[in-house]
Write a protein that binds this DNA or RNA. Structure first.
Length: 314
DNA sequence: AGTAGCACCTGATTGC
DNA sequence: TGCAATCAGGTGCTAC
């Protein structure tokens, strides 16, 4: 599933293929893919028509293209005020065609026709399970005046991203802030990792991987996580994502800007996720899998001890 | 305020 | 064989 490393791979692909292009035409094949657009597909298309994709920016799993008015780059005086935002949900993919595009794929939810100096291109948004979306919306300034995300120095984020925390690989993120937020409340630590308002970019797979690496039980109450443990956990989150990024970035077709979670990192290098019953590579104990808070959760009961102030063991 | 739970949706897989 | 139940997942909303 697309988590931070996969979305970053998509972002860099799109940065090279569609940034600088002008939107010539917008077609929505499935209106629910623009369900966040108050005025529906009509408004979506109208706000995009004729605008230039000025950059490809990412915060956590959220992706957007600031929209500039048409005109040569050096003529543009105003900073972008709007953006085309995208979230890939669990199965969203972008595909770019150069020249003439084929008939849209069965899972294609929207098609954006582009004009570029290299000729026409087509940007397709595919999404089998339809949890993803596109929306054209207004940019809002960041409170700290720092860049809103990876891929642009613009200190702004789209409206739908204002409540999303900076991600674990954001150089403007405050470690102390993230550590403090990870330790607050009664929820299990895994739920904090998945809470995109605490630190963004982490999904179910990397949450399990980071907890395994940090030897923390997913259900340890946040308030029972020490500052040192939270810091170590954040380090593990970064390590696992950087490793995934290094692998995911090498193995995708440039024009099929692939976010299929099964590409790259997914099936190769996982220590906990999807390994129920298999031996823990650290201690040899069997990896356990259980549904926790509605999500499949994988951990090593020997390495990741349950927090139990009274009962002696899990 | 913080937390829990459900809706959203499709296709693959499993069960009867 | 055919149909129904189950599962996978992230986010946004509602309800306590």
């Amino acid at each position: 599933m697309p988590e931070l490393p996969e979305v970053e791979t998509v972002r860099t692909g799109l940065a090279s293929l569609v940034v600088g292009a002008t939107i010539a035409d917008v077609e929505v094949y499935r209106p629910s893919c623009v369900r966040l657009q108050p005025g529906g597909e009509g408004e979506f298309a109208m706000r995009l028509q004729g605008m230039v994709l000025d950059a490809a920016v990412r915060r956590g799993k959220f992706l957007w293209f600031p929209l500039a008015e048409q005109g040569a780059e050096e003529e543009r005086v105003d900073a972008p005020e709007a953006a085309l935002s995208a979230h890939l949900g669990m199965s969203g993919q972008f595909r770019v065609f150069e020249g003439e595009a084929p008939a849209p794929h069965g899972h294609c939810r929207a098609r954006i026709r582009l004009e570029t100096p290299h000729g026409p291109r087509t940007l397709d948004f595919l999404d089998q399970r339809t949890f993803g979306y596109l929306v054209a919306e207004t940019l809002r300034p960041t409170r700290d005046g720092l860049p809103g995300g990876q891929g642009s120095d613009l200190a702004a984020v789209p409206g739908s991203v204002t409540h999303i925390a900076r991600d674990a690989l954001d150089t403007a993120a405050s470690d102390a802030e993230i550590v403090s937020r990870l330790r607050r409340g009664t929820r299990g630590i895994k739920q904090l990792l998945l809470d995109q308002t605490v630190v963004s970019g982490i999904g179910n797979i990397y949450a399990d991987e980071a907890l395994w690496a940090a030897r923390l039980h997913p259900e340890r109450p946040a308030h029972a996580v020490s500052a040192a443990q939270a810091r170590e956990l954040l380090d593990c989150v970064r390590a696992v994502m950087r490793r995934a990024l290094a692998q995911g970035g090498t193995s995708f077709d440039a024009l099929y800007v692939n976010v299929n979670g099964e590409s790259g990192y997914f099936s190769r290098d996982l220590a906990a996720y999807g390994r129920a019953g298999e031996p823990c590579e650290r201690c040899g104990g069997a990896i356990r899998s259980e549904r926790i808070g509605g999500r499949s959760t994988h951990w090593c009961p020997r390495c990741q001890r349950r927090f139990s102030p009274r009962t002696p063991r899990d």
